[in-house]
Amino acid sequence: MTGTAIAGVMIPALMGLSYLGLALLALAKFGHFREVFARAPSAAQSRGLSYAGSLLLATVFILCGQRFGWGYGSLVFMGLASLSGFLCIMNLSFCARLMPGAMWVTGSVSALLALNCY
């Protein structure tokens, strides 16, 4: 893929991955898990979700740093995290039940796109 094409695909991929990471962190919380799955999470599930979310966000940060340079990449990461955080929150407030589906779709598409670029 050409340079600009990679950049064009990379951003949505990174955004999708950070959305997924933040969604996992959200689901780790008792109230949001219950909103989405109509049952309480166990302690292990909560911990697992929060580790998975943090790990994914760390991965996105590293990918941003490698792709754009660490200075520029940190800024891109923070901007993407804010924007996907906002989408996550809108998702939770307006259509919480659709969240798992949205997570699967964005997760797989973003992972595929990201793998394609590396």
């Binding site: 800024l75 891109v76 901007g79």
Partner: peptide, 22 residues
């Protein structure tokens, strides 16, 4: 540079803009 964001390319600039509106 961070305040004026003159260095930013359009995508990052848009993110800065959204943060400003936030």
């Amino acid at each position: 540079a961070l305040h004026t964001a003159r260095f930013a390319d359009p995508m990052l600039r848009l993110l800065f803009f959204c943060c400003g509106l936030l």
